[in-house]
Write a protein that binds this DNA or RNA. Sequence first.
DNA 1: CGTTTAATCTCGACT
DNA 2: AGTCGAGGTTAAACG
Lengths: 254, 254
Amino acid sequence: MILETPDKATLEDALRLAIESREFVQVIGPCEVVYVGRAASLTESGEYVVMLKPDGSLQVHGARGVKPINWQPKTDDLRVTRDEDDRVMLLAERRSPSELVQITFFEPRLMIALELRDEKVFQLHGSEAQMHEALKRNLSSLEIGLTLLEHELPVGVGDIDIYARDAQGCVVVIEIKRSKASQEAVHQLERYVSAVRLQLPPLFSAGVRGILAAPDISKPARKQLERLGLEFKVFTALPEEPKTVPQTGLFELA
Amino acid sequence: MILETPDKATLEDALRLAIESREFVQVIGPCEVVYVGRAASLTESGEYVVMLKPDGSLQVHGARGVKPINWQPKTDDLRVTRDEDDRVMLLAERRSPSELVQITFFEPRLMIALELRDEKVFQLHGSEAQMHEALKRNLSSLEIGLTLLEHELPVGVGDIDIYARDAQGCVVVIEIKRSKASQEAVHQLERYVSAVRLQLPPLFSAGVRGILAAPDISKPARKQLERLGLEFKVFTALPEEPKTVPQTGLFELA
DNA sequence: CGTTTAATCTCGACT
DNA sequence: AGTCGAGGTTAAACG
């Protein structure tokens, strides 16, 4: 359904109906958006594209950028009402965290409502999970003599990507990054190495090695890494087999 | 401009024209999306909403979620062509990083092209930067007797949010988080405290305190914090209940 | 539920 | 251009 410059009553009814029947809805035109929740925001009245998906997620797009200016990932309550000046409002509420997005429509240029078939298969190559698999199967590509001890080992402060032993018998903590490693990645590795050292007898603590495996590393990160006595090794993911991510709906439409 | 079920030639011409004149464009209907760049992805043919903004950013939305299925934050080159089966294709290319999104349209249900006035003022309240300002101006709300020494003090491994002195004359390192603090925040604070201790004479090192200021803290983080002899103090950016108790909130929603 | 972490993160700021 | 760090991050995985 396409409505050009709908009047208030038409917009209101159409919105209610479309929300009720869980359609994909868009309203394009001047509006004002207020958000209160984890933070608070207020847009001056301007032209935006309001997009409401069948799963209840809401986003308001401006003229620039991939990010919406306002959004609501999940809505527990969607309401269409009128404000004190009789303008049509869309309220998207969420509990936990308590959040409210309130959109006031002025003179919408366009409203669209249609059924959007849920997407099919989506295949992504080159994820970190795939790199884990690749590295697990061929640890010696990082360094001769490495043997896998654990994968995703919980260590109190998070999970260690790869926990291994080197040819000399030393414990090795490996952190994998799918793209260029930054200082944050170094901090993360450092955190895991410290945790392991604390859990081992003092005699073995000094022997614990930390390796950052990534296709590249930033210059400051490398400096920091060396200061901490940790190591960097080039590791690039060559995806062998696409990982299938089924993006099925949260609920079925009857 | 609104085109319902446009044929190939109409879609192609309209797309070219709209891109040329930097309009906001949407094409809704079955299509296939291929992405190659930092990773690689492939969508099976399905119904999507393709959104092209005047700034050249591109996003492809499915039926669920705030995040697009595919996107391109910046495009250096936008092209409309035909594939080997004569289907209309939209190519969005980007250099640095080298990325390509390729959309093949099958039988579009709808195409929209319109001018979208750039957004007006957008005000966000409750950012971490604002929390810094608020805390700086009222350090004693955290603890009586605290006096500011430095803000954003660099210490090699990053900047200390707030560097202060307590009533007893001890140095205090304060780390601020705008939302619930995790173990990573604790580790960050730990790094700063250690750095400060190393820079001070041994006599003063033991007296250095570390405070994590956030609205909340996760249970494991709290445990870790206490183990390290650090402290947590509640600090919220936004007033909890502004109307019932008109207590002076740190941030006002104008 | 809460917690943690990857992400084609995006986006802005700073060097 | 490169790097860093916040974000109403989102979203998924795991306990």
